[in-house]
Design a protein around this nucleic acid. Structure first.
Length: 172
DNA sequence: ACCCCGATCGTA
DNA sequence: ACGATCGGGGTT
């Protein structure tokens, strides 16, 4: 499989979030087709952790594209993002859904960012990893195009006017 | 030092 | 509809 290069992530976050639908996330032996994403972008997006400026936690969002941003939410779940756009502009794509096969070749639908991190075993240990040149953690290209819809993002109280969530219509 | 609250999820 | 659970970040 062809890995996505840094230039893929060094683009408008909305474009990256849309183009990631149908791509394959590879992590620690697992391979899942990305079925749902959300974009968090810049200083004008009140729902973005980085909108109010750089802090120790959001530092990674200000850095080079192609790095992981993993944080703990509600004291219980982890969320996986991939940093986008040029250094200095804080943005990332939240990976919210995966379709994959388990050891018994059964299809597993991981709908929800907390669930997929729990299944894959992603924790804050995986924060700030460069996934462009990494043996077991990267995103691979695929020929299939998946139709998707645009909706408001889930679980936020601000920025609900933006249609920055992208969800595949049919699960591969 | 303290307090509020969140890019969630399973259960009721 | 709600509780679990805890770290980040702002405030004192």
């Amino acid at each position: 499989m062809k890995r996505l290069k840094r230039s893929f992530f060094n683009r408008c976050t909305l474009t990256v979030a849309q183009d990631l639908i149908g791509k394959v996330l590879v992590f620690n032996g697992h391979q899942g087709i990305i079925t749902e994403t959300e974009a968090y972008m810049g200083f004008e997006d009140p729902a973005s952790h980085a909108a109010k400026g750089e802090t120790p936690r959001t530092k990674i969002m200000f850095g080079e594209p192609g790095f992981s941003y993993v944080y703990l939410i509600y004291g219980m779940y982890h969320c996986l993002n991939i940093v986008t756009e040029q250094k200095g502009f804080p943005a990332a794509v939240l990976i919210r859904g995966l379709s994959l096969l388990n050891n018994s070749q059964e299809k597993i639908l991981l709908n929800g960012p907390g669930k997929l991190c729990k299944y894959l075993g992603i924790t804050k240990k995986q924060n700030a990893i460069d996934i462009i040149n990494h043996d077991t953690f990267y995103v691979a290209d695929t020929k299939q195009k998946l139709e998707f819809i645009e909706t408001p993002r889930i679980g936020i109280k601000v920025g609900t006017d933006k249609l920055w969530r992208y969800a595949a219509i049919e699960m591969p």
